[in-house]
Design a protein around this nucleic acid. Structure first.
Length: 873
DNA sequence: CTATTCACG
DNA sequence: ACGTACGTGAATAGA
């Protein structure tokens, strides 16, 4: 007979873990599912990784256990289980039944004791046992045959406690974990322990004396006066705490190991529960073929397009295999309305004058999935387009910016149309990605066009209901075209400039690398945080300041605090900084220069939750500027025509101005109307001094407070930023809010509004839903509250600059200027312009940008121009 | 494929 | 007591 492998799960503990590790997902029926989902994911992983022959989920039974007789306050003061979690337990039990996994609970005992008893029996029989829990107490059960897995952050990450691992981590045997708890107690179970003794002291005592009993036998050897006194006074409590922490391994259980034999899941039952809970990804894992239930359609592939086949209102989709529409080949174009549908292979489409004429005529209304992609991809073949009146991607983004859309199918499915296949299912992914037969592509593309046609009225209706049609139709939709033009235009980038900087960087990096190895006395990979951590904190022996979930943090703020401790630190910081410049900005950007000598970024218009744009392939919104070495990279971005200049204009303090407007805070409004330096003005208020008395440190602190206000302030965040205590940070915040009562009121109001409506809005009625604002989980709720404060500010600033971009494009056109808009960097617009238009730009750019949306405070725009982006400062 | 780090507003 | 600043994208290491 093969050796048994027995897996014992601590049901309550894992359900709690899953619940708190995941956001509060709700399915379409309004049932919270995060704990069930997380638990299922864990279970899946365990079944795959551990392949148990026997398995059991143990549950805590009722409220009182034998431990309450010992100590009435056991587990006292615990918050009661949130209702969002307790409603999930019935589903969990049902799911485990479907998996044919035995479940067991025992009156008067906790899940721990069931697990302890079973593990002892199995262990004695020589079986391999794996215990899984979120509760470290269980580690006392580790033995040569028994490993205890404790969940770390998240749900899939587990720390494996063997006796060796416990020895390494704590320096004690597994059973001594009980003594450790006896001494230090356990706040979560309300086990008192000995006051003043924490983990460190407990371990020190145990390593020296071995057990609680022996500590008291040798009590006279303990020299620390206060510690000795605490131990002496609390002797009874220490022994009681030890008893409470001891898992019962002889509980009167009525199951035997043989009852735990695992026979595998009942897939029909599992599937139906997954369906009930809408676990899409899990469903696909178990039944990938189930998704392909598509309605049959007729597909016509056209060899020659006739005018009669096109009408004034049609859905159109440009099909490409790759997501980067600025480089991908167009495979074909599908067109549909309620009367007909057809697919035109691109080889034919691009030669069709009938199609070209129809595409560029704005009176033909075109409904598409991504108008920017359509515009920019066709532009590469010299095909002009106009009259995109519906954009599925933008429309759904405006309805809810929090959902991520990967392809057309992911959108249509959300709105109840299941007749579009996923791109991945059609083209494959990774190494298996390949172009299928034309008939398959034709059908795929046709389905998309049909779905767009069908969904348009539904989604437009939704936009009307939410009073967002204007935002969508008058702002985002026309902006898509402007962005498409910007992407197509691209930014001329000088290869040589990058290469020269690259050569310098490479030389400096080689020198730094040699110096670092020299000081360290060995070679290692400086780019590996893991290897660097070992060197700094183990070999050299510096004190770790922060930990990450995988080890020591070596982030810049940590290293900066250690700079005076060891000469290697500054070299490493320097190496990191230059390495970043070289890999991301020199090598990275060089790879992105197209044959036309330009970089063509893509602006993601339907991605951020706040309404901002983002920039990818490459990201041109994070080109270095703060430090001079990095800023030099900007010298590589130049005008594309001789005799032209780059012209850059940015909003000054737009987010704080938006805050002044939205909060109606009189003092903040007054400060901006006065044209004051806002950080200095804030410093005067927060520190209660006159303008002359504001020092640079005071201004710096005030600036950090202003940032904090915009982000949804917390004392901890501000204290980290300024490297001060939380108390002092809280004082700053209190003083600030006392001085700006309008802001204080606004922050309270916006959180209340989010709770009432479930969402917050921006100036132009952009929405962000914040379901977690009512969560019983402190972290989730706090995050939602900060988001409620930040999103209207960041999002309204995004509204302003987007409107400014439309106005600028129109103005340039009306004035018949050659100037081209190239980039947007959140509060900044970059143009290229012939010299003779610069004077005009100095006038119209600030004028247009400052009047994009009128606020209760003036908007202020600064500008500069030069022969490269570096010079526009 | 995830975690860490760091560039920007 | 909890444990975090808001919003992004890209490179690298190491399972």
């Amino acid at each position: 007979m093969t050796k048994k492998k027995i897996v014992l799960l601590d049901g309550n503990s894992l359900a709690y873990r899953a619940f708190f590790a995941l956001p509060l997902l709700t399915n379409d029926n309004g049932i919270h599912t995060n704990a069930v989902y997380g638990f299922t994911m864990m279970l899946q992983n365990i079944l795959v990784d551990e392949k148990p022959t026997h398995i059991l989920v143990a549950w805590d039974a009722g409220k009182t256990t034998f431990r309450h007789k010992t100590y009435g306050e056991y587990k006292g003061g615990r918050q009661k289980t949130p209702s969002e979690l307790s409603e999930q337990f019935p589903y969990l039990r049902k799911l485990l039944d479907a998996y044919n996994i035995p479940q067991y609970e025992l009156d008067n005992y906790e899940a721990d004791d069931i697990i302890g008893t079973l593990s002892k029996i199995s262990d004695a029989a020589g079986s391999e046992v794996v215990i899984i829990s979120g509760d470290k107490d269980l580690t006392q059960l580790a033995s040569n045959n028994t490993t205890v897995f404790i969940t770390r952050k998240g749900i899939t990450d587990m720390e494996k406690y063997t006796p060796e691992h416990i020895m390494e981590k704590y320096g004690i045997e597994p059973l001594r974990i009980i003594d450790m708890k006896g001494l230090m107690g356990d706040a979560s179970d309300n086990i008192p322990g000995v006051p003043g003794v924490g983990e460190k002291t407990a371990l020190k005592l145990l390593i020296e004396y071995g057990s609680v009993e022996n500590v008291y036998k040798s009590i006279d050897n303990i020299t620390a006066k206060k510690l000795k006194e605490n131990l002496t006074v609390n002797e009874a409590q220490a022994f009681m705490s030890k008893e409470l922490a001891t898992i019962e391994v002889n509980a009167p259980i009525t199951v035997s190991v043989d009852d735990l034999a695992y026979t595998g899941p009942d897939m029909d039952k599992v599937t139906s529960i997954y369906q009930e809970l809408k676990f899409r990804t899990l469903l696909e894992k178990i039944a990938p073929q189930a998704e392909e239930v598509l309605q049959d359609i007729d597909v016509t592939v056209i060899a020659e397009l006739k005018e009669s086949q096109l009408s004034e209102e049609m859905a159109i989709h440009i099909e490409m295999m790759d997501e980067n529409y600025l480089t991908a080949d167009i495979l074909g174009i599908s067109i549909a309305n309620e009367l007909s549908n057809f697919y035109i292979p691109f080889a034919i489409a691009k030669e069709s004058t009938v199609l070209r004429k129809w595409l560029q005529d704005s009176s033909n209304k075109k409904y598409t999935s991504d108008s920017k992609a359509a515009f920019a991809s066709l532009a590469r073949y010299g095909i002009e387009t106009d009259g995109f009146e519906f954009d599925l991607l933008l429309a759904t983004y405006i309805v809810n910016p929090s959902t991520t859309y990967t392809d057309v199918a992911s959108i249509t499915r959300e709105f109840g149309n299941a007749d579009v296949r996923q791109d991945e299912a059609v083209y494959g992914k990774g190494a298996k990605k390949a172009l299928p037969d034309q008939s398959i592509v034709a059908e795929h593309a046709t389905r998309k066009a049909q779905a767009i046609w069908e969904l348009r009225p539904i989604i437009e209706q939704k936009l009307q209901e939410n009073d967002q049609y204007n935002l969508y139709h008058e702002l985002e939709l026309p902006l898509a075209k402007i962005l498409g033009q910007m992407e197509s235009t691209g930014v001329k980038t000088d290869r040589e400039t990058l290469q020269v900087i690259g050569t310098e960087l490479t030389a400096k990096l080689a020198k730094l690398e040699a110096d670092i190895y020299d000081i360290a006395g060995e070679k290692f990979n400086i780019n590996s945080p893991k290897q660097l951590g070992v060197l700094l904190f183990e070999k050299i022996g510096l004190t770790p300041i922060k930990k990450t979930k995988t080890g020591y943090s070596t982030a810049a703020d940590v290293l900066e605090k250690l700079e005076s401790e060891h000469e290697i630190i500054s070299h490493i910081l320097n190496y990191r900084q230059l390495g970043k410049l070289n890999s991301t900005y020199i090598e990275g950007l060089l790879k992105e220069i197209h044959e036309d000598g330009k970089i063509h970024t893509r602006f993601q218009q339907a991605l951020t939750t706040t309404g901002r744009l983002s920039s990818i392939n490459p990201n041109l919104q994070n080109i270095p500027v703060r430090l001079e070495e990095g800023r030099k990279i900007r010298a590589a971005f130049v005008p594309s025509e001789p005799g032209w200049y780059l012209f850059a204009a940015d909003y000054s303090q737009i987010e704080l101005r938006v805050l002044a407007h939205m909060s109606h805070d009189e003092k903040l409004i007054e400060a901006f109307r006065d044209g004051a330096d806002i950080h200095t003005r804030t410093a005067m208020d927060v520190f209660g001094v006159t303008e002359d008395a504001v020092t640079s440190d005071m201004r710096r602190a005030a600036k950090a407070v202003n940032f904090g206000i915009v982000y949804g302030i917390s004392d901890y965040g501000l204290s980290q930023n300024l490297d001060i205590t939380r108390k002092d940070a809280q004082k700053f915040i209190d003083t600030y809010l006392a001085n700006f009562p309008g802001v204080k009121q606004y922050m309270a109001d916006i959180v209340a509004e989010a709770k009432r409506n479930g969402y917050v809005t921006t100036l132009l009625n952009r929405r962000r839903y914040l379901p977690e604002i009512t969560s019983s989980n402190f972290n989730l709720r706090s995050f939602a509250e900060r988001t409620a404060m930040n999103t209207p500010i960041q999002g309204s600033a995004a509204d302003v600059i987007k409107k400014a971009m439309l106005d600028m494009a129109k103005r340039l056109k009306d004035e018949g200027m050659q100037t081209r808009m190239l980039l947007q960097v959140h509060d900044e617009l970059i143009f290229e312009a012939p010299e003779e238009e610069i004077e005009k730009l100095k006038e119209i750019v600030p004028e247009v940008m400052e009047s994009a949306i009128m606020l209760d405070v003036p908007l202020k725009v600064d500008w500069a121009f030069g022969l490269s982006w570096y010079e526009t400062k």
